[in-house]
């Protein structure tokens, strides 16, 4: 049942997810608005990628619900889940291109799998999508011949091939040189605005993310620490948020991993 357009596209309520005894999420509520770029931020190891996998239905939470476009993701049968996933695009950190086929076939892949379009039509769509990410000329290359940034752009073209309603970006800026970083930042924003997409960006690169996000959620210790517009978050009064947003070396999160006193440690003989 489609909801009205001012309802959030994704509604996460009371999400709990454990790996063994460790709580990755312990009661998380997140709303992701339609047509906006929402950033999920947090230190490494806070389960940001896990959150995307939960939204995509690849993982199952221990408690809580995730509604995407009015459907409870974890109550759907396989067929309905797959149908929902066709309307979700996901950009993996590594690009996740299929390494045994070239760029063109990678972008054409979801079209060939899910539509019965004639090959001439697929060709047009693929070339347009590749043009949008500026890699139409690279269509005969194999994924191994691409740089990391190019691979991500091809993956982006593939993610939008089926014109999804939303795209999830998993750490899109990690390990990019400044130029490809700039290209990606601009691409995410322009794709979002041009195609009326909803974007979710998972990242810990504060500046790039703050530059394109409409709203930022900061997650740590399995909780949403704070959320709001980038400007508000940068000037946040909360000490923790400030440390994270400005990358301060010491603050509520200590520089030192918990240990005995240094003197005591040095005096002791055993390792």
């Amino acid at each position: 049942m489609p909801e009205t357009s001012d309802e959030p596209l994704i509604k996460i309520r009371g999400l709990k997810f454990f790996r063994g005894d460790r709580a990755i999420f312990d009661g998380v509520d997140i709303d992701i608005q339609r047509g906006k770029v929402t950033a999920i931020m947090g230190p490494s190891g806070t389960g940001k990628t896990t959150l995307l996998k939960l939204i995509g239905g690849q993982l199952r939470p221990q408690a809580g619900t995730i509604h995407v476009d009015g459907q409870d993701v974890h109550k759907l049968g396989t067929r309905d889940l797959y149908r929902l996933r066709m309307r979700m695009g996901m950009l993996f950190q590594s690009g996740a291109l299929l390494t045994d086929i070239n760029v063109y076939d990678n972008v054409a892949y979801p079209l060939r799998e899910h539509t019965k379009l004639p090959e001439a039509m697929i060709r047009k769509i693929v070339l347009l999508k590749l043009e949008a990410v500026g890699l139409r000329g690279a269509r005969h290359l194999m994924p191994s011949e691409l740089s990391g940034g190019m691979a991500r752009r091809v993956a982006l073209a593939r993610a939008v091939a089926l014109d999804p309603m939303m795209i999830m970006y998993d750490e899109p800026f990690t390990g990019q040189d400044p130029i490809s970083m700039g290209v990606l930042v601009q691409l995410i924003r322009s794709l979002n605005d041009a195609s009326r997409l909803t974007s979710i960006v998972v990242s810990h690169d504060v500046h790039e993310t703050a530059a394109i996000a409409d709203e930022i959620y900061v997650i740590a210790h399995g909780q949403v620490m704070e959320h709001g517009e980038p400007k508000v978050m940068m000037d946040s009064g909360e000490e923790w948020t400030r440390q994270f947003m400005h990358g301060l070396a010491d603050g509520p999160v200590h520089f030192h991993y918990p240990a005995d006193h240094l003197e005591q440690d040095l005096m002791e003989k055993r390792c």
């Binding site: 996933r85 979700m88 996901m90 390494t99 899910h114 593939r158």
Partner: peptide
């Protein structure tokens, strides 16, 4: 390299 995950998210 997340290719299997990628396929899954492409509903394959």
């Amino acid at each position: 390299t997340e290719q299997l995950s990628g396929l899954e998210m492409m509903a394959v």
